[in-house]
């Protein structure tokens, strides 16, 4: 028996064709979650942006939802984990975190994202870490 045959594809020219009626590719504008970064710059919220509370306890003014989030990120925690523990969709995290960043109640640590040429020292660190697993 022979397996079915695939045909390799080539990298799409930039920008990649994105038929908007299918809702694929380029994120819908309302799904671009822009938050104020640590130095007031704007950054897209990523699943693995790390969030850390600035103070040990939530202020009395915090809403229950904000207080829950602040308690969870007493130690650094990714947006994905916050979303999982709070049972909130990723899209809801954008609004919640923008409020908390604006109120200077949390820090956001930007993720490491893929570069055109991979960062060798990063990959070596990851390989060493995996080796210890």
């Amino acid at each position: 028996m022979t397996p079915p045959q695939r045909q390799r594809r080539n990298p799409a020219p930039e920008p990649a064709p994105q038929p908007s009626q299918e809702g694929e590719g380029k994120p819908n504008p309302e799904r671009m979650y822009v938050v104020a970064g640590p130095d007031g710059e704007r950054a897209e919220l990523d699943l693995v942006t790390l969030i850390v509370a600035r103070a040990a306890d939530p202020p009395p003014s915090a809403t229950p939802e904000q207080a829950a989030l602040l308690r969870l990120c007493a130690a650094p925690l990714s947006v994905a984990e916050l979303s999982a523990y709070l049972s909130l969709p990723f899209s809801a995290m954008g609004t919640l975190l923008t409020e908390l960043l604006t109120a200077e109640l949390v820090h956001a640590r930007s993720p490491i994202v893929r570069q055109a040429v991979p960062d060798r020292s990063l990959l070596e660190a990851v390989m060493n870490g995996l080796q210890r697993l």
Binding site: V48, A68, P111, V113
Partner: peptide, 21 residues
Amino acid sequence: SDTIPGPRAEDQLPHTTQAAA
């Protein structure tokens, strides 16, 4: 907020954690 289970103590990332990939 009192009903939200968070990470177990041993699952907390150290404060030194700078970034995630």
